[in-house]
Computed example of a mutant assay.
Amino acid sequence: MLAAYWRGEITLRKLRVLIQYLPEDSPARWQATDGRPFTIRDAMMWRALWSVATVAQQLAGKDKNAFENMPAYPWSKPLNQNTYGSFGDHTPEEVMDYLDSL
């Protein structure tokens, strides 16, 4: 499309309309989603799933800051996540003491 515009085969208005009405999961839009197809519907479902899981954790008395840790996409790592997994209710020092005692 862009090449056709530069060659003078289509007008700027037609180029804008063609780009504006591309499907949401078109490869031309993947730069905004880490190179993967991800539509608005997918984003809404991801947020709904994360919300249900977070409410369940909060009702169980676990993670109180789960909403703050929500990753932007299902394939990205949660924000503020410990790279070694969850320590549960223990501090990193308690975990290290336990590992040293093995």
Rank of each mutant, 00 (worst) to 15 (best):
M1G: 09
M1H: 04
A3P: 05
A3F: 13
A4F: 06
A4H: 06
Y5N: 06
W6Q: 07
W6S: 02
G8L: 05
G8D: 04
I10N: 05
R13F: 06
L15G: 03
R16F: 06
I19C: 15
I19K: 07
L22C: 05
E24M: 00
E24C: 00
D25T: 10
D25I: 07
W30N: 15
W30T: 12
Q31M: 02
A32W: 15
T33P: 09
D34L: 02
R36S: 01
R36V: 06
P37C: 04
F38K: 00
F38P: 00
D42R: 01
A43M: 06
M44K: 10
M44V: 11
M44A: 07
M44P: 00
M45Q: 10
W46A: 00
W46C: 00
R47A: 05
R47Y: 01
L49M: 11
W50L: 02
V52S: 09
V52G: 12
V52D: 14
A53P: 03
V55F: 02
V55M: 05
V55H: 10
Q57G: 05
A60R: 09
A60I: 05
G61L: 06
G61K: 07
K62V: 03
D63I: 12
K64H: 07
N65Q: 10
N65T: 09
N65D: 11
A66F: 04
A66G: 03
A66S: 11
F67W: 14
F67Y: 13
E68K: 02
N69V: 07
M70P: 00
M70F: 00
M70L: 03
Y73N: 01
Y73F: 15
W75T: 01
W75Y: 01
S76Y: 04
K77Y: 02
Q81C: 07
N82P: 04
N82Q: 09
N82E: 08
Y84Q: 08
Y84V: 13
G85Q: 02
G85A: 02
G85K: 00
F87Q: 15
G88V: 11
D89S: 14
D89C: 11
H90F: 15
T91Q: 04
E93M: 15
V95W: 15
M96Y: 04
M96P: 08
Y98N: 05
Y98V: 03
L99E: 05
L99Y: 13
L99V: 09
L99A: 14
D100C: 08
D100V: 04
